[in-house]
Design a protein around this nucleic acid. Structure first.
Length: 197
DNA sequence: AGCGAGATGAGCT
DNA sequence: GCTCATCTCGCTG
């Protein structure tokens, strides 16, 4: 059962990013259903966050869904070949989002391996934001998709003790000045599907 | 096992 | 025209 809209609607996006750890991301397509436990996330705090696409209230065709209702997918394309999956949080008009950077495969491992034939080890399959999108079949056709629908959703799975949650600076946002050092990346300590140690 | 570079295109200035 | 919320390969040691 998908998490309720209220889960995403809260204003404390960093808190929501922590709470997403241990939840199950589920994606259904004609090819089949795959799922993975979320093990790494990053919070992007909207207009005041230099690392966010919505910094300064910038609003474009690409980031439009960040400004919409919470509980929707924000999927964008980077580096000429990769997609990244985010969920929109905060009230409508508050352009916050949480990037999913790593999941541990649960269902549909075979389909995921078929989609990522280059991944030699299981731990290479979904240990990164671009990797997990390929493995789970997430692309821009899912941008703006309701996370309370049946194509993509997130549900309860495991409880993660606060003591086993680690945090640190976000990856690949060195251009963000002082905001680059904010501890807005969260991961399950010791999990093999975290993109970096 | 760690580092540098190339891939590849949309989005913004 | 350059930057980018990345990944993989091939070189070095």
């Amino acid at each position: 059962m998908p998490l309720p809209r209220k889960f995403y609607a809260r204003e404390n996006t960093a808190k929501i990013a922590r709470e997403l750890l241990g939840k199950l991301l589920v994606v259904s397509s004609p090819e089949g259903r795959v799922s993975g436990m979320i093990v790494e996330t990053e919070a992007y705090l909207g207009a005041i966050d230099r690392a966010a696409h919505s910094f300064g209230g910038r609003r474009t065709k690409r980031n439009e869904v960040m400004y919409g209702e919470p509980g929707f997918a924000y999927v964008f394309f980077v580096y000429g070949m990769y997609n990244q999956f985010n969920c929109v949080t905060g009230a409508a008009g508050t352009p916050h989002a949480i990037l999913i950077r790593g999941v541990e495969p649960v269902d549909g491992v075979e389909l995921m391996q078929k989609r990522r034939p280059k991944a030699k080890r299981l731990t290479d399959l979904t240990s990164g934001p671009g990797k997990l999108c390929i493995a789970m079949g997430i692309d821009r056709s899912l941008n703006g998709e309701d996370l309370l629908g049946n194509k993509v959703f997130i549900e309860r799975y495991r409880t993660v003790r606060p003591a086993s949650i680690a945090s640190g600076k976000r990856i690949g946002i060195d251009y963000a000045g002082e905001d680059a050092d904010l501890p807005l990346r969260f991961w399950i300590a010791g999990n093999a599907f975290v993109s970096r140690k």
